[in-house]
Design a protein around this nucleic acid. Structure first.
Ligand SMILES: NC(=O)c1ccc[n+]([C@@H]2O[C@H](COP(=O)([O-])OP(=O)(O)OC[C@H]3O[C@@H](n4cnc5c(N)ncnc54)[C@H](O)[C@@H]3O)[C@@H](O)[C@H]2O)c1
Ligand SMILES: NC(=O)c1ccc[n+]([C@@H]2O[C@H](COP(=O)([O-])OP(=O)(O)OC[C@H]3O[C@@H](n4cnc5c(N)ncnc54)[C@H](O)[C@@H]3O)[C@@H](O)[C@H]2O)c1
Lengths: 219, 219
DNA sequence: AGTACCTTGTGAAGGATTTCACAAGCACCC
DNA sequence: GGGTGCTTGTGAAATCCTTCACAAGGTACT
């Protein structure tokens, strides 16, 4: 018999590291489910996600109570709960700005779609790129951006333009109503209150590695 | 007259967020230098990096004392100091494993080189990709991986293989002596003690955005 | 029905990081 | 040479995040 139903819980403010870990748990659970497992303990989840079992339980406890004491978590149920928590019980249309090397790679990335995100538009200033097709989506001129955002109502934009163009591109998508942006350009952008900007910065990632290598005298 | 010289400081253990911010400061300073500015205050640096001036000063203070009270920091000197702190006073050879869409995009990414990282090898199992050239580097067969690592002595590997192949690829590069890895596959990997693995996970980034959008009722 | 065993959920403790706030240093001007 | 104004460097306080540790709840087996 079903319980009546997935407690939409209190939830105050959740730390970003927690949200990142939840995403990681979900990723692992999906694979674990495919392998045919029915339940999982916080300990197993922790090992897979590189944390501790207490951390896993604490992370989940912010949103409700999903496990059975003595048994662990029902894999399928936990997947459903995590999807709901993360806002993945609906699909998210996404636009990509910049159809260069990285933009094209992303547009053709299948994992995008399998995680609930649909690329509904991709834009470029370069006339020679406009009109080419990437994974079923035709590259459109950047002047179509605002109109398309109005009609396709994506909520997320991915910026794959050169650093010099990134702030301007951000301003345009924000002006058109976008409130969540993933930025691949290696520049830090300023956005108005209420707009979430996340950056994927290759140089920073490599530099963190370089730092770790030069300071491996830590124990 | 030169001071005698950039204090190689005490330095205990530095938190990762600090290192990330230092990388961000460096990125901004390089642009700021090109614009011809000679000095910068912690406040300006903070605005550019999305933090506070106290945070900037605290971050730097772990490594020494780089500013002049009343004036701020000399841009060129601070750039040099940050490069040294991050281990960027030498160039880093890097190998890329997997010459698919993302691996190819990275291999052709110029920003890689301008930040001190040289792609010295790129490897793929697919015979149809082997032999193609990407930005001056020829794709080689994955069986050449261990030998090349021995002769080219890269210290960093970037994994751009499918999720199923990622752990095996990690094990191979680690076995060949690599101790720092950047993983683009959406799987969390386990590495032996002493090996630093960082992950760039597109799905997680988008999910954090989706979470932010669904919970924008935070003030 | 009772016992043994296992794993969750969670206050409380502990640790880490960020923010505060201010003394000290430096440049510039009168 | 003393005063003014600005900005750094840094202990101390505050906040945030993780880990601990254990009661509570559940299963399985006898
Ligand atoms: N290639 C990589 O692996 C990689 C990795 C990390 C970060 N990046 C960053 O991603 C961004 C793009 O890199 P890339 O390698 O794809 O470069 P690219 O030159 O291949 O692509 C950039 C594309 O953006 C288009 N563009 C320029 N201004 C535009 C605008 N205002 N609106 C729409 N489109 C515009 C250009 O026409 C071009 O097609 C850069 O900021 C780069 O630093 C790239
Ligand atoms: N394309 C993207 O935008 C994107 C974005 C984020 C993450 N990723 C991840 O990056 C990885 C690669 O994605 P992609 O889109 O480039 O896929 P792809 O299929 O285009 O490329 C994968 C390449 O790896 C090669 N390969 C497979 N096993 C290998 C092995 N053991 N050794 C060496 N090479 C091997 C394949 O021959 C292929 O050329 C995947 O894990 C994907 O999830 C891709």
């Amino acid at each position: 018999m079903k319980d009546f139903t997935s407690t939409p819980p209190p939830v105050k403010h959740i730390a970003e590291p927690t949200v990142r870990r939840l995403s990681g748990y979900l990723r692992f659970l999906e694979a674990f489910d495919v392998e045919g497992h029915e339940t999982i303990s916080s300990g197993e989840l922790a090992r897979a996600g590189g944390t501790t079992s207490a951390q896993v339980r604490k992370d989940l406890s912010f949103f409700g109570s999903f496990g059975k004491r003595g048994l662990g978590y029902a894999v399928k149920d936990l997947i459903a709960s995590l999807r709901e928590i993360l806002g993945l019980d609906t699909r998210w249309p996404v636009v990509i700005v910049g159809a260069g090397k990285i933009g094209a790679a992303l547009a053709q990335y299948r994992g995008f779609g399998t995680h609930g995100f649909d690329v509904v538009g991709i834009y470029d200033t370069d006339p020679s790129r406009v009109g080419t097709r990437l994974n079923g989506v035709t590259v459109r001129a950047d002047r179509d951006l605002e109109g398309d955002i109005a009609t396709l109502t994506p909520r997320i934009a991915v910026l794959c333009v050169p650093g010099e163009a990134a702030q301007a591109a951000l301003d345009r998508v924000v002006g058109a109503g976008i409130r969540a942006v993933l930025n691949f350009a290696p520049t830090s952008l300023v956005a108005p209150e209420g707009v979430t900007v996340r950056a994927v910065n290759m140089a920073t990632e490599l530099e963190v590695l370089a730092y770790a290598l030069t300071n491996e005298s830590r124990d």
